[in-house]
Design a protein around this nucleic acid. Structure first.
Lengths: 129, 129
DNA sequence: TTTGACCCTCACATCCGTGTGAAGGTTCGA
DNA sequence: TCGAACCTTCACACGGATGTGAGGGTCAAA
């Protein structure tokens, strides 16, 4: 499909799709006329990338961890060098930290919202101003 | 305490502490000479803010959810308007989505790294080139 | 054949969190 | 009293993700 359709289907902009390509996040074919020609699978991939960006990861990091996340999950044996493994372990651990932090904040907000709703109910019943 | 000390204790920079103040994230007193005078509690608060920023939240959002996160957790009853509650629920839910997404990715990376290490071991044993 | 909707590249602009430096005031110890 | 180390404000700069516009090509339908 062409860039306009993919942009619409992923709720992004053509500009961003070109940017992700430039950053090495997606691979894109070209038609004879020079237009970008996107594979159907890119719809999911772009959604995935957007999620990761939205979660605060940089394109640099996403580029590094993306190979692990391909669905067929074919292991690239050549990648099993110690420093690549170390890099991935680092990303894995920092992801865990980030998750823990987000979880703490999520829980705090949830608790606060709970109290607030409780309180709103109480006010509604007790102080019918 | 003064800005230098707080910067050091929170591993930030004076510049950022001024910025957080400017963004309405922290409240800061002034000494007679015009110097900022930070309360002890700011150490934790700034750490908290840094965590949220690091987790990908913007100062605008942080400003909104910060009141819920104060340690004494004194509920601001006046805040219990339906739209504020809705906003908070929105943040809470989007946080939950992010956590789910990051968790999936964390697990995928962990699994991939596991396979990679396994594979590295195998190669080491099987192909002592 | 022309028009309109799409695509291309290039490049400058914006926002946000952050760094940095200038120009100057305060405090404190030598 | 001088200098070092701290503080102030102001303002410009930068990198990353994104918007926008100029100048131009492609293609299909009228």
């Amino acid at each position: 499909m062409r860039i306009g359709e993919l942009a619409e289907r992923t709720a992004t902009s053509p500009r961003l799709l070109r940017y992700y390509e430039e950053q090495g996040l997606i691979r894109v074919d070209r038609s004879a006329n020079g237009y970008r020609d996107y594979d159907e699978a890119l719809v999911d991939q772009v959604a995935h990338i957007r999620g990761l960006l939205d979660a605060g990861l940089s394109t640099r990091i996403i580029r590094q961890i993306l190979p692990c996340l391909n669905e067929p999950s074919e292991i690239h044996f050549a990648d099993a060098t110690p420093d690549i493994i170390a890099t991935l372990e680092g990303h894995r651990d920092r992801l865990a930290e980030r998750i823990a932090l987000l979880t703490r904040n999520h829980d705090a907000i949830a608790e606060y919202v709970g109290s607030l709703k409780q309180c709103a109910l109480g006010v509604e019943r007790a102080v019918p101003a």
